[in-house]
Amino acid sequence: MLSRIAESLYWIGRYAERAEGTARILDVHVHGMLQDPWVDQEEACRSLLKVMGVTTDATQVSTLQVVSLLGLEQASPSSVVGALAAARENARGARETISTEMWECLNATWLGLPAARIRIEQQGMHAFFGWVRERCSLLNGLTEATMSRDDGWLFLMLGRSIERADMTARLLSTHADAGGSIQSWLSLLRSCGAWETFLRTYRGALTDRHAAEFLLLDRLFPRSAFAALSAAESCLDELEQATGPRAGVATDAHRIIGRARTDLEFRGVDELLSNLSSVLSTVERACSRANTAITGRYFRATAAVTWAVA
């Protein structure tokens, strides 16, 4: 498969997951602001922006501004709208590789973006975030149903898994920053769509320990950091299967992800909890280093070559 196409597929995976993850995080945040009468809005907004890696010069930060920056900012590929547009742009360059249905889904979503603001005004933010989640789920479903499980699929899954690990780490950081109340665990689990599964697993016992264990380490829930890292790891493994070495792993990316995964896996919950922020930032850093390694290994410089100055 062409390196350029592989790169596009990887980024379709990342951007679509980012749009969904960010929409989920924002939904929780907005909901939390409304539900909790004692929360310091200014402080919560600032901490959310910090966790998402967005800087702002504004002296006053309101929830509306946060939604505007992280949800609707068209120029930024980390906002929901920007990520969806970027996913579509990548799909446009790989249109002959992805199925028509996937393309149509991304394109129709992109065509619906200009109406995002109006949708928020008319139906509220929750409806908009719901729409984003739906479109992303539709894309995932179509991908699942129409893509053959070749290298292209692996790159798409790789992008999605890395972004998912990163998003879950950020989601947990919002919790750590907000002081870690039980109430916030609840909305966190809801935002991952994990509430019912969690209740069934732990028979309703919502404690710090259980919630952190579930979102960080659960083997069976696909959005846990551990599960996402494992998924990325197996994609990397399969990509090198034909030429895999006899000892160790073949690529730096695999090494980085594998270490991040074992770092979580072989630590006790108490140990993780006592040092949550630094654990989370290790996961985030591992994702970004893996990204660099993957780019270097698989998407070899395919920039245009200039032969002469015009």
Binding site: M1, L2, S3, R4, I5, A6, R95, E96, T97, D151, F155, L239, Y298, R300, T302, A303, A304, V305
Partner: peptide, 20 residues
């Protein structure tokens, strides 16, 4: 495959495309 110029390279009069 749909390729762009940067996906192709030509060496010793043979044309190939960069793949993963």
């Amino acid at each position: 495959e749909l390729v762009e110029g940067r996906d192709l390279l030509c060496a010793a009069n043979e044309v190939s495309m960069r793949t993963t």
